[in-house]
């Protein structure tokens, strides 16, 4: 439950994964450049998956993201979790809103929703920082 957040390690892992994903997208140039919206969607998805992958499967929110992309591998874990943590608190209003915003939030009990939200926010902040750095770096090269 403690917030030991290895921000710099997560940032580095995210940067490596995201740049690799961008590189792969770049190789598929023919497919991705024809449609700018498709290219944007692919980049957005890569950013999301790279962040979850940098965090690893020990967090509920990252597990929820990973289970979408690597369904087969993580299905067993997430199903088990859902059995252990039944929807104890369905919530309403703000809480329900929050459940819709945090990946996997719908199946969490209230306490883990709060701690997963805190972790998720810090990851989004780190993600934004790294993506801004990449953008600045790339535009300084051009």
């Amino acid at each position: 439950m403690a917030m030991n957040f290895h921000q710099s390690a997560i940032k580095t892992r995210f940067a490596v994964r995201f740049v690799q994903a961008m590189k792969r997208l770049n190789k598929r140039r023919g497919v991705t450049t024809t449609d700018s919206y498709k290219r944007y969607r692919a980049t957005r998805a890569a950013a999301c998956a790279s962040m979850a992958s940098a965090v690893g499967p020990q967090r509920a929110w990252s597990r929820a993201v990973l289970s979408k992309t690597k369904r087969r591998r993580f299905q067993a874990i997430s199903r088990k979790r859902r059995l252990i943590n039944p929807r104890r608190n369905l919530g309403f209003g703000q809480e329900e809103d929050l459940r819709g915003l945090v990946p996997g939030g719908k199946g969490m009990e209230y306490c883990s929703l709060l701690s997963e939200t805190a972790h998720y926010i810090r990851c989004l902040q780190a993600q934004i920082q790294v993506m801004t750095d990449i953008l600045h770096h790339s535009s300084s090269l051009n």
Binding site: L98, T117, I121, L135, S138
Partner: peptide
């Protein structure tokens, strides 16, 4: 909780925006 939701939405928008700008880089920068 309300402020948290608003903040997460603004962070999502920021990631959306950065993704869009980075995807534009895909076509020219190598």
């Amino acid at each position: 909780l309300q402020e948290t939701c608003n903040y997460i939405r603004s962070l999502h928008r920021e990631v959306d925006d950065l993704s869009e700008r980075l995807s534009e880089l895909l076509e020219n920068a190598d």
